Amino acid sequence: MRFAAIADIHGNYPALDAVLADIAAQGITDIVNLGDCFSGPLEAGRVADRLLSLSIPTVRGNHDRYLIEQQPEEMHISDAAAYAQLGVVHLDWLRSLPVDLIYRDEVYLCHATPDDDNLYWLDMAVADGSVVLRPQAEIEALAAGIESPLILCGHTHIPRMAALSGGRLIVNPGSVGGPAYDDEKPYPHKVETGHAMASYAVLEKSTSGWTAQFRNIRYDNMAMSVLAATNGRPEWASALATGRMPQSY
Results as ranks from 00 to 15, higher is better:
105 D>T: 13
76 H>I: 05
111 H>I: 07
67 L>S: 00
106 E>M: 12
10 H>Y: 12
100 D>L: 08
43 E>D: 07
81 A>S: 15
102 I>D: 15
41 P>E: 03
51 L>E: 06
106 E>P: 08
45 G>V: 02
12 N>T: 07
77 I>F: 13
80 A>S: 08
20 L>C: 11
57 P>I: 02
76 H>L: 09
23 I>G: 13
94 L>I: 11
20 L>T: 14
69 E>K: 06
20 L>S: 11
72 P>S: 11
59 V>H: 07
111 H>Q: 05
26 Q>T: 01
73 E>C: 12
98 P>F: 06
19 V>A: 12
115 D>Y: 10
69 E>S: 04
98 P>Q: 12
102 I>Y: 15
85 Q>G: 00
97 L>K: 03
94 L>D: 02
96 S>K: 15
9 I>H: 09
30 D>A: 15
108 Y>T: 12
91 L>F: 01
23 I>A: 05
28 I>Y: 05
73 E>P: 07
79 D>V: 14
7 A>Y: 04
24 A>E: 15
78 S>K: 09
43 E>H: 04
16 L>Q: 07
115 D>L: 04
80 A>I: 06
109 L>C: 13
45 G>I: 04
36 D>L: 12
5 A>E: 05
82 A>Y: 03
57 P>Q: 04
22 D>A: 11
109 L>T: 08
41 P>T: 01
84 A>F: 02
44 A>E: 00
78 S>F: 15
33 N>T: 06
97 L>H: 05
22 D>Y: 01
19 V>C: 12
8 D>N: 11
13 Y>E: 02
23 I>T: 10
87 G>Y: 00
19 V>S: 10
29 T>L: 03
105 D>I: 13
80 A>T: 00
15 A>W: 00
6 I>F: 08
95 R>S: 03
4 A>H: 03
7 A>R: 02
47 V>L: 09
108 Y>W: 14
100 D>S: 14
98 P>C: 08
114 P>I: 08
17 D>N: 15
41 P>C: 10
94 L>A: 11
114 P>M: 11
77 I>E: 08
13 Y>N: 03
103 Y>I: 04
48 A>H: 02
76 H>R: 10
16 L>H: 12
55 S>T: 13
7 A>N: 08
37 C>W: 05
19 V>F: 06
100 D>M: 10
31 I>G: 12
27 G>N: 08
25 A>I: 05
50 R>T: 11
112 A>W: 02
12 N>L: 01
57 P>Y: 01
51 L>A: 09
104 R>C: 04
115 D>W: 15
70 Q>R: 14
53 S>E: 13
19 V>K: 06
21 A>N: 05
54 L>T: 08
110 C>S: 13
9 I>M: 06
101 L>F: 04
89 V>Y: 01
61 G>K: 14
49 D>W: 00
55 S>L: 07
24 A>Q: 06
28 I>T: 06
105 D>K: 08
100 D>Y: 15
75 M>R: 01
86 L>Q: 00
59 V>D: 04
63 H>G: 03
11 G>H: 14
86 L>I: 01
59 V>G: 09
42 L>P: 00
76 H>G: 07
65 R>S: 07
75 M>K: 02
11 G>I: 14
8 D>V: 10
93 W>M: 04
49 D>S: 14
80 A>C: 06
55 S>Q: 09
70 Q>Y: 09
116 D>K: 07
88 V>L: 04
62 N>K: 12
19 V>W: 02
81 A>Y: 15
64 D>I: 02
